[in-house]
Design a protein around this nucleic acid. Structure first.
Lengths: 343, 343
DNA sequence: TTGAAAGCGATACCAA
DNA sequence: TTGGTATCGCTTTCAA
């Protein structure tokens, strides 16, 4: 037999089609008898509503599309897990559309792309202006997460403040500063996240008239951190710890915990001792890094995901008079890595 | 003004609604004049078809859903890039539904989940039987990629054969064998990929009555490879190279190139020299690993993605009498890492 | 080659 | 609290 429709259910239950619809959509003012018979009929027939018909009539899809870069995992895992969790509670589902290569935005120029078959669009870690060279062809709510733009609802970390905070923590130690910075990848847009952290750091340093004794550019990954640390080990210019009687530790400031973690491992394997030969600070509040004793300027990823979901829901509810610009402040999470030992 | 519909376009162009539809769907037998006027009207009004109405009427969505684990990136990047490329050529779009935690399959029990609003379902690296404890609630084509099951169209690597091939390469060197194996993650299903590679390897070893001198269990990542290699460096039981006058290199066989790459870096940093102190072989055909000179039992990821897409398209076209069980054979890609130096 | 009209399967309005 | 019916926007059939 063909897939049953509301009419089949209605006939089986001995009620009208609208009653079936009302039961299925939890409308008030339904008698218990009718509800029970409808549910029984649904069960008996194995009825499943047709989403296309539902959407056509109601004008809603109960879906949110997420546009995201296909890089990294732990971060998006946490972020999108939180987003999905909140959306789910309001009966919204979520589909992901990874960018599959920076050049392939063409795919989303078409307003009838699957991406836009949704009630709202969440753009992660991307500037829509740059991405679309204009606006997305979508006249429903658009929310940015881990990115911000004055024309869009934005939920983001204050990476500028994070940079400043990190620099202040570093300066307070009064040690020679090594900056593990992120190299631009040719052909890709530079990540605004790292640009802002760097800007915040340099702003504070400049104000104090202090410069890093060394800046190493590398990939924004654990292996990148390792590579930079290796340079520190093998080319210990301009300060070489562990040879004086009063060694001067280096303060290594990395633009991400991933990089910091890599540096820690590499330096440790090279015989440098944390607290004695170097101090270390990263960004993100990465759990692995915290377990390894690393201090971090942390950012509440899951919380931000929830906030983004709330922003979407509010926009969908039409309860959004003004533009949301919600920034999350960084928090210094102290571990062993910013404490000198044996003093 | 409200969103224009076919009727608006038809009025503007001075034709009937069906003519508009025909033009938009590239039907034959349309006069050039009508076509031109319709296209002009579409342009003028900024008309975009309503996908819900289209799907309701036609019974098709022109969409394929992909169910995938939210781990790894390079692999799925390549795989899904290839899948999407083929689908796109046939006007199908693609949406991703990551598993966001092993326990959350509940989300997909509901037959009216967004996941199933598609013409076909692609399941990556998962056994549907295990996943659903039965069948997915979806009576349209289902294709498995990087996984196989006798009841579903499957496109996969022959990891068993890959394991055998790797073991044969290793045995041909007649060196003490160290196996870098993958540790089970508690709470997660063991990956069939590694199970099969291991089985293939052990099958060949057993047949020859040979056992690895050492098996190290670690995470299936670069860092996992590093950790295992570190054990090799610091606890050089039972064979210690570099101290005899005639050193015996170890043959290190890792279940993935990622792990092999990690091992290579760690051993290199520990002073072991590739070709003299150890040989190394991994799986996957990872590009980074190849650049580092690693030999690999490679698997054509993009090719497999394309094959999976073709399987979907064939199933959608209804041209699929029998069940597809397409396996891709491994290929030994020789680099420097399996050649002894100075002999 | 074209237009009128039926119908896909739901929801929402209105009258009862 | 309920059922009948119009309607969402499109594709398809049928007749011209």
């Amino acid at each position: 037999m063909a897939k049953p429709s509301v009419l089949d259910v209605a006939r089986t239950a001995g009620v009208g089609a609208s009653t079936v619809s009302r039961v299925l959509n939890n409308h008030p003012n339904i008698s218990n008898g009718a509800r029970a018979r409808v549910l029984a009929a649904v069960e008996a027939l194995g009825y499943t509503p047709d989403l296309n018909a539902r959407s056509l009539r109601s004008g809603q899809t109960q879906a949110v599309s997420v546009l995201l870069p296909m890089t990294g995992t732990a971060f998006y895992d946490t972020l999108l897990g939180a987003v999905h969790h909140r959306l789910e509670a309001h009966d919204y589902d979520m589909a992901l559309f990874p960018l599959l290569g920076a050049q392939r935005i063409r795919r989303f120029r078409d307003p009838s792309a699957l991406l836009y078959r949704a009630d709202a669009l969440l753009i992660a870690s991307q500037d829509p202006q740059q991405l679309y060279a204009g606006r997305p062809p979508f006249n429903k709510p658009v929310v940015l997460v881990d990115a911000h733009h004055p024309h869009y609802h934005s939920v983001f970390f204050d990476n500028l403040a994070a940079g400043r905070l990190a620099a202040e923590v570093a300066l307070a130690c009064r040690l020679p500063l090594v900056l593990l910075d992120v190299d631009d990848v040719p052909g890709e847009l530079p990540s605004p996240v790292f640009v802002e952290r760097r800007t915040g750091i340099l702003e504070v340093l400049n104000r104090q008239g202090i410069a890093p004794v060394r800046t190493l550019y590398t990939r924004a990954s654990l292996e990148g951190g390792r590579a930079a640390a290796q340079l520190l080990l093998t080319q210990p210019f301009p300060v070489q710890p562990r040879q004086d009687d009063l060694p001067t530790p280096l303060f290594v400031l990395a633009l991400s915990d991933e990089m910091a973690l890599g540096a820690q491992r590499q330096l440790g394997e090279g015989g440098w001792q944390m607290g004695r030969d170097y101090l270390l600070l990263g960004f993100d509040g990465n759990e692995q890094a915290a377990q390894a004793g690393l201090s971090s300027v942390a950012q509440p990823v899951a919380q931000m995901g929830e906030a983004a979901a709330e922003a979407i829901l509010a926009a969908l509810g039409g309860q959004l008079g003004t533009l949301i610009q919600q920034s999350f402040a960084p928090r210094f999470v102290e571990g062993a890595s910013t404490r000198r030992s044996g003093t």
